[in-house]
Design a protein around this nucleic acid. Structure first.
Length: 823
RNA sequence: GCCGGAGUGGCGGAAUUGGCAGACGCACAGGACUUAAAAUCCUGCGAUCCUUACCGAUCGUACCGGUUCGACCCCGGUCUCCGGCACCA
């Protein structure tokens, strides 16, 4: 090894070594315990950013550490390589999406390799690869055959400027994520996945995911949005129709003073057709349809609506109440109609005030501060039932159950559960995605493509205009096919799949990435799954993580895997900022991994990013901090270099004799313990690194001692190199070689710590008087409570301080402290 | 509006089970080495006060209060910031 630390030379050398020697190749091995570490695979934009570096550094430390601890570790990488940017490149620069994507993938691979990440590259998966999307299509067909995929006409998000459909997640504050114009609605026939069938399981299983941050679980819970209530039938007077409503407040049934249907409710037109109400209703419908999402959902909006000329009959007391339509009732939730109780619902209250409708209180708060007969806002809290017939006097929370039971007995209502979660719209009018393998036949309807005809390949004779229908429609022959069922001429589906489908099962493909006959072999998947540790940004807390869970459950139901949940443990890493703000081109505060790797090396970049903050928290990039990490590596290098000159082989016998020996032995073993636990258990990489820094400081001190034990020191330095290696693998390989070893560090077993060395002969005990530290005692380890108390009270300083005072109580905690309470 | 999370020196952060608040690092200051600089090494570094100095005292983990021998940690309330959901009946 050289006297000077040359990161450029070393990193290139070891990256080549790892690749040439296939060091990170993984195979199934039933004799070993498996561990699956997975980082969310990137979209191949072409350039790595610091968020990637953080994500992959975390995963790599875990993977390398557990590998050394004897686990059979699966640590794969790939690319989520379908998606809009490739198509935009085609539109803007005329580059073929495939060409653009594959050259980006090559570039990103190169950069990932420069970080020295321990991936088994033989398992690389790219979602735009026909070998992959063939199985994506196969899975789609399995879902279709199981009734999980269906096509339906529905209003969808439509950007009038981009002339395309947008996913919900691409609508930000009611505007198009790309061009910022307000998003409208358009009726289109689209493919959906019945994720709502899994709502209850997706919700229930969250409780079993102990290894997930509660924050993510709460977010998913909110997103699923379960609410328990009742469905109640209100007959519509002078018709034979029933108006079904959903309510969570069955207790307020006696307070209903009007009813509301969503403007799109199918009954609306039937009820007003040919009446004097038809014209105003049509006018209102027109107004609502031209509103975009921001206007429609704004809570500050004044309530609007139209009376439709009909009345509903309250089944509980026969009272007739008017029916309105209003945009504050949504067709997509519940039954698309509500019973309105202005006294106890703020929205209904506002509507009632505006339209001068009755407000009847049915829950009495029981305080003087609120006068229920003269409300200024709806009273939504708990209280006692009034004006409610036989339910009067009951607590209203209890009345909910009682009213529902009564309704059920009368056959006019029942307990119901509603979810906010909607079915997953998966069609995209895009080119660069997996073609949906469905065929429309005039005789047979929608028929899935035959398995032997998969993959349905993306055609290349397409035009990219950026507007209108999918580019696939511009292909001369793509659409033409034969019906797989009857053989007649038929047409292919022209839409492609949402790319979130691709990323919903890639972790299964990694288990068996090259299989030409199956999406993945069950035995292999059962060996590797579930993912022991998944790591990625919290921005995927809802969509990706819920879609992947849904896929896993559906595949489980199809008998394709034995796990219902894909990710046992989840770590959501925080963002990498600069100067307290998100790194962004427009602010000009972007630090590129490339420049840092060139200047300081990947080891420094990895070390800094792991040391600067705990993984879940935001991290502020600091150039000075990077400098510090680089200094530390140089400090380690000099220490090892000095010893490498006269190395005895690190295995010479030694004895821990002197007090200094014992101290070093203590620090050495506590460091091993701390690093082992911090990396393997709590993912506290920052404290793991700081304890290694303490060990280095201790080694520097110790080596200056006249009676320093060389053999022991060598052993300690060797251990230092081993436990530092998961963080900074290149420099450690080089130092390891410098110490005369010829094997790669990944084959070196992780050091065990000596329990006996963790116990000091004498320890420091704090003596407090009334909870304030006044004295420190050095006593032998494990001194009993009584002896400790005696020791403390006989101390001169303590005696002086307690002189003439009344000792009320003495609390002695062995190996910790003594607290003397005086008066 | 509803649901989460966080608040500790000049800065990033540590304190893992209620037991020495500020580990480790950055920045800064002083010193050593050097013709000089860089690098390196050593020392100091929460605030206020006392003292020539050593020693020491008081305060201090967003704010107010509580429980406890003892609270950054537990409980009640308040403020601020961040995140999610949001006319979801």
């Amino acid at each position: 090894m050289n006297e000077r630390y040359n990161h450029v030379e070393i990193e290139g050398k070891w990256q080549k070594y790892w690749e040439d020697h296939n060091v990170f190749k993984t195979v199934e091995d039933e004799t070993k315990k498996k561990y699956y570490v997975l980082e969310m695979f990137p979209y191949p934009s072409g350039k790595l950013h610091m968020g990637h570096v953080r994500n992959y550094s975390i995963g790599d430390v875990i993977a390398r550490c557990l590998k050394m601890q004897g686990y059979n570790v699966l640590h794969p990488m790939g690319f989520d390589s379908f998606g809009l940017p490739a198509e935009n490149a085609a539109i803007q620069r005329g580059v073929e999406p495939g060409k653009w994507t594959w050259s980006n993938i090559a570039e990103m691979e190169e950069q990932l390799k420069q970080l020295g990440l321990s991936y088994d590259w033989d398992r690389e998966v790219q979602t735009c690869n026909p070998d992959y999307y063939k199985w994506m299509q196969w899975i789609f067909i399995q879902f279709y055959n199981k009734g999980l995929a269906y096509k339906k006409e529905n209003p969808v998000n439509w950007c009038p400027s981009c002339q395309t459909v947008l996913a919900n997640e691409q609508v930000v504050d009611g505007c198009c994520e790309r061009c910022k114009s307000p998003v409208g609605k358009k009726n289109l026939s689209q493919w959906y996945f019945k994720i709502t069938d899994y709502a209850e399981r997706l919700l229930d299983n969250l409780d079993k995911l102990d290894g997930w941050p509660s924050k993510v679980k709460v977010m998913q819970k909110n997103w699923i949005g379960k609410s328990i209530g009742a469905e109640i039938d209100f007959p519509i007077a002078d018709t034979n129709k029933l108006m079904k409503v959903f309510t969570t407040r069955a207790d307020t049934l006696f307070g209903v003073t009007y009813m509301v249907m969503a403007p799109e409710h199918p009954y609306v037109m039937e009820l007003v057709k040919g009446t004097e109400y038809e014209a105003p209703v049509l006018e209102y419908l027109d107004k609502v349809q031209h509103m975009n999402d921001i206007e429609r959902t704004s809570t500050t909006n004044e309530k609007t609506g139209v009376f439709i000329g009909h009345y509903a009959v309250n089944p509980v007391n026969g009272k007739k109440v008017p029916i309105y339509i209003s945009d504050y009732v949504l067709m997509g939730y519940g039954t698309g109609a509500i019973m309105a109780v202005p006294a106890h619902d703020q929205r209904d209250f506002e509507f009632a005030k505006k339209f001068d409708l009755d407000i009847i209180p049915v829950v009495d708060p029981g305080t003087d501060e609120i006068d229920v007969n003269n409300l200024t806002e709806a009273f939504a809290a708990e209280g006692t039932m009034i004006n409610s017939g036989k339910f009067d006097g009951m607590n209203n929370k209890e009345a909910i159950e009682a009213v529902i039971n009564w309704l059920d007995g009368e056959g006019i209502g029942k307990k119901t559960v509603n979810y906010r979660l909607r079915d997953w719209l998966i069609s995209r009018q895009r080119y660069w995605g997996t073609p949906i393998p469905m065929i429309y036949c005039e005789h047979c309807g929608w028929v899935p493509e035959k398995e032997e005809n998969l993959p349905v390949l993306l055609p290349e004779d397409v035009e990219f205009t950026g507007t209108g229908a999918s580019p696939l429609t511009t292909s001369a022959h793509f659409a033409d096919c034969k019906c797989p069922k009857c053989g007649a001429d038929a047409k292919r589906e022209m839409d492609t799949m949402d790319t979130f489908l691709d990323s919903s099962w890639y972790f299964l493909r990694y288990c068996d990435p090259k299989n030409p006959n199956e999406a993945f072999n069950k035995e292999k998947a059962d060996y590797w799954m579930d993912v022991d540790q998944y790591i990625g940004g919290v921005e995927h807390a809802i969509l990706h993580l819920m879609y992947a869970r849904f896929f896993q459950m559906a595949l489980y139901d199809l008998g394709l895997t034995k796990f219902e949940e894909p990710f046992k443990n989840l770590l959501t890493q925080g963002m990498v900022n600069k100067d307290g703000r998100k790194m962004s081109k427009s602010i000009g505060n972007v630090v590129s991994p490339e420049e840092i790797i060139t200047k300081y090396g990947a080891d420094t970049a990895r070390l800094f990013i792991l040391f600067a903050a705990p993984p879940e928290r935001e991290l502020d990039w600091s150039d000075a901090g990077v400098e510090g990490s680089y200094r530390f590596l140089n400090r380690v290098w000099r220490l090892v270099y000095d010893f490498a000159q006269n190395w005895q082989g690190g295995s010479a016998p030694y004895e821990v004799k002197t007090a200094a020996d014992k101290e070093l032995n203590y620090v050495l073993n506590t460091t091993i313990k701390k690093v082992t636990e911090d990396v393997g258990g709590r993912f506290s990489f920052n404290t793991a690194i700081s304890s290694i820094m303490e060990l280095v400081n201790e080694l520097y001190k110790y080596k200056e001692l006249e009676d320093a034990n060389q053999a022991f020191l060598e052993k300690a330095i060797e251990t230092l190199v081993v436990i530092l290696s998961p963080f900074t693998p290149h420099i450690c390989e080089e130092m390891w070689e410098g110490l005369g070893y010829t094997d790669s560090l990944k084959d070196v077993p992780w050091p065990a710590y000596d329990e006996a060395a963790l116990v000091k002969d004498t320890i420091e005990i704090v003596v407090q008087i009334n909870g304030k530290v006044k004295e420190k005692l050095h006593v032998s380890n494990n001194l009993s409570r009584e002896d400790l108390e005696k020791e403390a009270l006989s101390n001169d300083n303590v005696k002086a301080l307690t002189e003439g005072k009344n000792i009320v109580k003495v609390i002695a905690v062995p190996n910790k402290l003594v607290n003397i309470v005086i008066k």
